[in-house]
């Protein structure tokens, strides 16, 4: 499998080249176009129970699409739902990424996806919900963000603070705590930041330059109320 990002920027697509009989997993609904040699299968990653728990708990799609080059090599075009950048990551079997539930776009056959329960404080206050995706295995992983994607490199014990709704993914060697934005509670709430995540290296944190929740409430004010 080989990936190439087309139209980098706000409205990108990914072109995935598949050799004969190779497959790619993609978020359901992500396929835009494909060669006629490609078959689309709907597969419940992790079996029925795995899929059910992922659907029930993280709100992630029940089915992933599996696109298989069953009649010879071909290519697939994939695109995310929201405008925003796409990033390609290489998984080598040891590195693992925690990905917020809307961040996954596609992954090679060897990429393993499971939902993982977060701790109570992280789940309750982190803004990512109680469940996130834990993605490991080997092969290329394609993530998408809302807005531009920004990579933060952390050395061992180096810290960085991220507004939790801007999180896309982070490596599993990185730890984080939920923290208030300012030293006082009142200042934390009135600053509009509320709670933030304090990440601690080593590892990498990917963040998105736009906050989907804030964008949603901004757009809501223009939608006429009907009843």
């Amino acid at each position: 499998m080989k990936c190439e990002i087309l139209y980098p920027g706000a409205f990108p697509m990914v072109r995935v080249y598949l050799d004969a009989n190779e497959t790619v997993k993609a978020e359901s609904g992500a396929m835009v176009a494909a060669s006629p040699t490609i078959d689309i299968e709907s597969k419940m990653e992790g079996g029925f129970l795995g899929a059910l728990s992922r659907k029930m708990l993280s709100g992630e799609k029940f089915f992933f699409q599996t696109l298989r080059a069953s009649r010879g090599a071909g290519e697939v075009l994939l695109a995310p739902t929201v405008p925003g950048e796409i990033v390609l990551l290489e998984l080598d079997g040891v590195n693992e990424y925690m990905v917020q539930k809307d961040g996954f776009l596609a992954g090679a056959e060897g990429v393993k996806i499971e939902s993982k329960m977060q701790g109570l404080t992280r789940g309750l206050l982190g803004g990512e919900g109680f469940f996130i995706l834990k993605i490991g295995g080997t092969g290329q992983l394609v993530l998408n963000s809302f807005g531009a994607i920004h990579k933060i490199d952390l050395k061992p014990n180096e810290e960085y603070i991220v507004d939790n709704s801007h999180l896309v993914a982070w490596t599993s060697t990185t730890t984080y705590n939920i923290d208030k934005a300012s030293s006082g509670w009142i200042a934390s709430l009135t600053s509009g930041e509320g709670l933030v995540c304090r990440f601690r290296g080593p590892g990498v944190v990917y963040i998105q330059s736009r906050n989907p929740g804030s964008f949603g409430s901004w757009i809501r004010q223009f939608i006429p109320v009907s009843e």
Partner: peptide
């Protein structure tokens, strides 16, 4: 991890 190594760690 360490100086001169990639931030995501060298396998």
């Amino acid at each position: 991890f360490g100086d001169g190594l990639p931030a995501s760690g060298a396998p």
